[in-house]
Amino acid sequence: MVLWDFDGPICRLFARHKAERVAAELVEWLELQGLHGLLSDAERDTLDPQVVLRAVDRRHPGSDLVAELEERLTQEELRAASSALPTAYADPLIRTWAAVGARLAITTNNSPRVVRAYLDGRGLTGCFAPHIYGRTADLHLLKPDPHCLNRALNGMGTAPSAALMIGDSPSDLAAADHAGVPFLGYARTDPKRKLLHESGAAHVVTSLEPLLTTLRH
């Protein structure tokens, strides 16, 4: 069983619809609601929309404000999905793994609606469905919490030791460690590779091509 993170190993979600702009627009919307002082300076200046969402959830968990902000982020992610760039070799690797009988799941902090929209567009939904485990209303359970990985393991009746997590961030690694799932890091850039190694990842690849080549042979 292979658990895939979505944004990174499968595609670059915000390759064209920039995450920095999405984060800035979420901050701007909060300020228009009269909530200028809600975020710290670091949170206000973040380049990551997930940071904004989680910061607001920590201060107003379960509120209508958080629900509205999450829906706004989901809509931006959906726009991004239409112009996302596939990660090199991801599509054929997914198809080949599915063809040889491996069971695949998505475990992501992005909205599952966004994942399905992207997979539909690539003709890949059948390789994963129904095992797409993404962001829920319980934002405190996002990775590095292992919640989505545990949902996938339980949903597919798989022991943690019989699975593999492919992720590109320290939060993916932490979630895999907490769930007891072996981890393979994917790093498109040297800084990401260094960060994963420094976070404790024992195995990191800079391309999915070696996995595809090994699988085909």
Rank of each mutant, 00 (worst) to 15 (best):
P61M: 10
Y133G: 06
D145G: 10
L38T: 00
A175E: 04
L104P: 05
V115M: 10
R193A: 10
R54L: 14
M1F: 00
L32G: 05
K194P: 03
Y186K: 02
D172E: 13
G157A: 00
A23K: 05
P130E: 00
L215R: 03
L141N: 05
D48F: 03
L173F: 09
F6L: 12
H60C: 09
T74C: 15
S63L: 11
E71I: 07
L149I: 13
H36R: 09
A129D: 11
R44E: 01
M1T: 02
L196Y: 07
D41Y: 00
A162C: 00
E76Y: 14
T206P: 04
Y118M: 12
Q33C: 09
K143L: 09
S199E: 06
H147S: 15
V205P: 09
R16A: 15
G123M: 08
V205E: 11
A42G: 03
S169M: 14
R58F: 12
R79G: 12
H140L: 15
L153A: 01
D168T: 04
W97C: 05
A117T: 12
L142Q: 05
M156I: 02
G62R: 04
T125C: 11
E68A: 15
C148I: 13
R59A: 12
L3W: 03
A67E: 08
H140V: 13
F183P: 07
